[in-house]
Design a protein around this nucleic acid. Structure first.
Length: 398
DNA sequence: TCTGGGGTCCTAGGACCC
DNA sequence: TCTGGGGTCCTAGGACCC
């Protein structure tokens, strides 16, 4: 099940004035903002996910930008999941807007076949929640995902076991989820463009070129996949928590960088504490102005959940990486996560930073998000304002 | 006026332990 | 005294997805 133009659809549902209009959902309205989701009306103008907002506006001057509200979309997804869970005990969401159901055991109960159940699910989500989705029905997850993408919006496509070979024969390899630009390029270089060709390729040749991935490639091209759909409640714990930001302008200014790293680290810390987690491995990511991206990580002995401790580690890594090249993006991620409850600390002094962080959380909880924050973080915010575009509708860069 | 921000998984070598 | 094999953790970085 794959929601259609999800963020835009949710916004159009919430505000009838947006229905039938070219709408784009964007993260914010800074000059380097991109389109997260375009409504189908906006897509008619050639606007697509990933386009710069200013470019979308050029394609369609009357386009309506909406700032993304992730809380709203997360809450909406919970309602969708509640509907899906009425159809199977195996429901596995793989992102905010798509998921798998194993309905093997549901068909008898609902007295229908896969195609019938797909239509039932689609109808319920449309009628009860007012949202369009596409559904793919197939013998496994790989093929179901393929099928769900074949007809949008409100499509429902069935791939029967006996039709798998013909369906895949002329399909470009990159249509398979997991084959991205790099694998596509390597395969094309070998003269392999379609799944049919990949399925027929010699295992030795694939192994020589791709190692262990070669086996997966061939099996996928044959439509084989035995990954089970997870049971309801069988959710994985988060592996990492991170934030990154593209700077308002490329910079080499250590002071600016320091304040942004602290800002990102504080955001990571807030989320860790909210999730009652501690992390031990800090990763700093740098994207240079030429888009080359590098990351370095370091594990600290004492697990951390406060922004100051995280930023200290992140900044140390940054200083080791820094060559003075202009920087476009900074990222701070923490991994090696463990539950905070019952955690033991070796040094009392480190407890102090955590107490300060908790006090800040309490103040922000009581008086509003961001009411208390570090002065250095405010420097980054001040810097950030400079990158803001004039309000939409008005001529750009006037 | 090129190209966001949230993630996951995998590989591979070296350190280290038993 | 020159020597095996298994396993885990750490780190770097690639590739991919929504």
């Amino acid at each position: 099940m794959d929601m259609n133009a999800y963020f835009a659809s949710v916004e159009q549902k919430a505000n009838p004035a947006l229905q039938g209009q070219p709408v784009v959902v964007v993260g914010d309205l800074k000059r380097r903002s991109i389109v997260l989701t375009a409504s189908y009306e906006a897509r008619a103008f050639g606007i697509k996910t990933g386009d710069l907002y200013w470019n979308a506006q050029r394609l369609c001057p009357q386009v309506i930008p909406i700032i993304a509200d992730h809380h709203k979309y997360t809450a909406q997804t919970e309602e969708i999941v509640a509907v899906l869970e009425q159809f199977s005990s195996q429901v596995e969401m793989t992102s905010i807007d798509e998921g798998y159901l194993d309905v093997t055991g549901s068909l008898r109960l609902f007295k229908t076949d896969g195609a019938g159940l797909a239509r039932m699910i689609q109808k319920r989500i449309k009628e009860e929640l007012g949202l369009p989705c596409s559904v793919g029905v197939a013998p496994n997850k790989l093929l179901a995902k393929l099928a769900s993408g074949m007809k949008k919006p409100m499509g429902s496509v069935v791939i029967r076991p006996e039709a798998v070979k013909d369906t895949l024969a002329d399909l470009p390899v990159e249509e398979i989820s997991g084959i991205g630009p790099q694998l596509k390029a390597s395969l094309n270089q070998m003269g392999i463009r379609t799944c049919g060709q990949l399925a027929a390729a010699s295992p030795e040749r694939l192994k020589a070129k791709f190692g262990i991935v070669g086996q997966w490639l061939k099996r996928s091209a044959q439509g084989e996949d035995d990954n089970p759909v997870k049971e309801v409640g069988e959710t994985d714990d988060a592996r990492s928590v991170g934030h990154s930001t593209t700077l308002p302008a490329d910079t080499t200014d250590r002071k600016v960088i320091e304040s942004f790293i602290l800002l990102l680290a504080e955001k990571v810390g807030i989320r860790l504490r909210k999730g009652r987690l501690l992390g031990r491995t800090i990763t700093t990511t740098i994207r240079y102005s030429d888009f080359e991206t590098a990351s370095r990580s370091h594990s600290i002995t004492e697990p951390a959940d406060d922004g100051l401790a995280i930023s200290r580690a992140a900044l140390k890594i940054f200083d080791q990486m820094n060559e003075g090249r202009p920087i476009r993006l900074l990222g701070v991620t923490i991994s090696n996560l463990a539950p905070a409850d019952g955690a033991q600390f070796l040094f009392e002094s480190l407890e102090k930073g955590r107490k300060v962080a908790r006090a800040m959380d309490a103040i922000n909880e009581k008086f509003g998000k961001g009411k208390i924050r570090r002065a250095k973080v405010m420097e980054a915010e001040k810097f950030g304002v400079l990158g803001e575009l004039p309000p939409p509708q008005k001529p750009r860069f006037s």
